[in-house]
Design a protein around this nucleic acid. Sequence first.
DNA 1: GGGCTAAGTTGACTCGTTGCACTTTTTTAT
DNA 2: ATAAAAAAGTGCAACGAGTCAACTTAGCCC
Lengths: 194, 194
Amino acid sequence: MTVPPVSRRERKKAATRQAIADAALRLFLDRGYDQVSIRDIADAADVSTTTVFKHFSGKEALVFDQDEERESELVAAVRQRAAGQSIPDALRRHVLDTWLPLAAHPQRAAFADLVESTPALRAYYERMWTRHTDALSAAIADETGVDHDDLACVALARFVLEIPVLTGGRQDRRAAVETIFDILTHGWEQASRR
Amino acid sequence: MTVPPVSRRERKKAATRQAIADAALRLFLDRGYDQVSIRDIADAADVSTTTVFKHFSGKEALVFDQDEERESELVAAVRQRAAGQSIPDALRRHVLDTWLPLAAHPQRAAFADLVESTPALRAYYERMWTRHTDALSAAIADETGVDHDDLACVALARFVLEIPVLTGGRQDRRAAVETIFDILTHGWEQASRR
DNA sequence: GGGCTAAGTTGACTCGTTGCACTTTTTTAT
DNA sequence: ATAAAAAAGTGCAACGAGTCAACTTAGCCC
């Protein structure tokens, strides 16, 4: 997975970052997002408030600690897809194989509740995904051999990234993902038939 | 359009609201969103900062003064569509006829720049539209005769509401809207064939 | 050991936003 | 018409998020 930090300095840095994230999540789950101030978190992690912001870009980022690398995985899923596989199918596979397991984690229930019940976190969560629209649509356009800002590619990318939000809180997530991809696949085939 | 306020009180209220919105827009276009504080706006409109928040829910809402009634129009476009017209076609008509003229306004250029160049405003703009997902998808589900939380309906609603963001800043907006609806229409027909 | 750099601290500050207590204006009921 | 209720607005103080600049500390490298 992630390479363990080498120097003592980097190890300590990672440790404080983790301490902050842990304290934050514990307090959030305990009291609710809005009832916890940055100062509370800093105190619990035994650091100053400014240090918190040195490690995290804002209060919302404390909740979604393990982001990153999703974008590159997504782009890779398109670029290195099996020969003869269509782009929507490659994305479908990737979503089913990679995103679904994440949502299945057991302790995820309380976490999902927290996000769902806090408007600021809902908004941040949505943006987190759609932020990758440009990278994904560029990859799709490249592989399709069309212009980089081709609208059909942008739309496909955007709609795929909308999946976590749309399927969130459903009982049968797998079926939900399939439903969306049925729509996207047929729409896409039509659009690229020109 | 909007009925003129009846009582003197409502007239005055509307006047101060307008004064605040005008001052805000002027200052924003002049100096940029982040370089203008609520206190600046309050001073320019000659009211107190608390009064500003009595009229607007937050700083971002000052920029998008004329929201509202879009949701009901959208729902009506689906519910009262011409006999024999499919739901995606009705939505396509509504988007082309109602949303495109709005984007064509001349003074809209500087305004669009402001929104585009300010992350907080971009985010607010996107939420503004997707906020209507529930109402629209409920209408679609009703008209289709399926369950209220049918995923295909939610997806269609969401994707339609994504159109302003996706087509923003394109040279030929009309063509862009048509492209998206081509995708959605074909996907939808497939999904509802069960 | 000594200099360099990055992590962390401290405290003051800005800004969005809310709560509270108070005045003024408008509406409504008597 | 007048008193009471309701609504709009004001001023002020406060809170929390986030930034900034100056400083201390600790790990790194020669």
